[in-house]
């Protein structure tokens, strides 16, 4: 572990912090274009964040310390997850701290605190949002775990850097198990980042909202941190999908040229992924809450089929 690899780690975290709003902006821009609306450009999320940071925080009278500390926990854990996933190089000192299973648990910590904060103030919306979020995540988490297990079976390791290494630099084989796992992962991705068939990211104050309902009481820099964290979550989930299922281009070592190529390839992949995401979102209608069990049940089914087909067919 040299100082150089810590520099790479720092660069990656900075990249995550400052590229995530641009990615969110890109998705919004493409979506607006696809739906024939005018768009504010991909830099609008930065302006939103700046505006929120400059505003005062208004706290409800009966807000406890949980409510105040949650934005920082959410933000901090998200940044930590961002330090573990290989974005442009697999030479990451942080990556050894957690494998994919721990990664899923870190996401669970974020969800746990957001749900607690939603209930903390005691408004009807917050409690409703928390209960929905917990229902959905109890179904999404097994599917997510099964999907990453399938991918780690193929790589013989649950460490993300090892998985990327085997996939990107090993021998190429057609794997039906990974195709199943990818489908399941996309469905979990849509769920976890609150995209259309599950939750609508662009609504605020709607009876069907889930994530928005929990953070309805936040304002000022607290809201800014949570919004920023959820943009990073979108970025992280997308790059996690890239790292596990399409890692070609991520540099094997820490040399500068490889990393620059890695950054370029990552940007291109994310741009394509954003378009795919928008196509899914525009093509589907928001699902009824009670149909979500079937949606996530199918995600679990696909992930399990992936795992079974690894044993049967490979």
């Amino acid at each position: 572990m040299t100082a150089y690899s810590y520099t790479i780690e720092a660069v990656q975290i900075l990249l995550l912090l400052f590229a995530a709003p641009a990615f969110a902006g890109w998705v919004r821009t493409v979506k607006c274009r696809m739906q024939g609306r005018t768009y504010a450009g991909i830099f609008q999320p930065y302006r939103d964040l700046a505006k929120l940071f400059s505003k005062d925080v208004i706290l409800a009278e009966n807000a406890s310390w949980i409510f105040r500390v949650t934005p920082y926990i959410v933000f901090g854990v998200t940044v930590m997850i961002g330090g573990i996933i290989p974005l442009i190089s697999i030479d990451l000192p942080f990556a050894a701290t957690a494998d994919v299973i721990a990664l899923v648990m870190l996401f669970a910590i974020i969800r746990f605190f957001t749900a607690l904060a939603g209930m903390d103030i005691g408004t009807a919306f917050g409690g409703m949002g928390s209960s929905r979020e917990m229902t959905i995540s109890s179904l999404a988490e097994p599917a997510m775990l099964m999907a990453v297990f399938t991918a780690s079976l193929a790589a013989n390791s649950t460490s993300l850097t090892q998985m990327v290494h085997v996939m990107a630099h090993g021998e190429f084989t057609l794997r039906p198990s990974l195709a199943f796992a990818l489908l399941a992962f996309i469905m979990v991705h849509l769920t976890e980042t609150g995209r259309v068939p599950v939750d609508n990211p662009s609504t605020h104050l709607e009876l069907t909202m889930i994530h928005e309902a929990m953070i309805l009481e936040y304002s000022g820099r607290h809201l800014a941190l949570i919004e920023w964290a959820s943009m990073m979550k979108l970025f992280i989930f997308s790059s996690l999908g890239i790292a596990v299922f399409c890692p070609w281009g991520i540099a094997a070592s820490g040399d500068l040229v490889g990393m620059l190529i890695g950054a370029g390839v990552l940007a291109a992949k994310l741009a394509v992924l954003g378009i795919i995401l928008v196509l899914i979102e525009t093509g589907l209608a928001k699902m009824r809450l009670f149909r979500l069990t079937e949606f996530l049940g199918s995600a679990f089914l696909l992930a399990t089929l992936g795992m079974l087909s690894f044993f049967i067919l490979e």
Binding site: L174, P176, S177, A179, F180, L302, L305, S309, L313, E314
Partner: peptide, 11 residues
């Protein structure tokens, strides 16, 4: 390729 087809049939 045949395995992929089998997987798709199962799907």
């Amino acid at each position: 390729v045949n395995s992929i087809m089998a997987a798709l049939i199962l799907l």
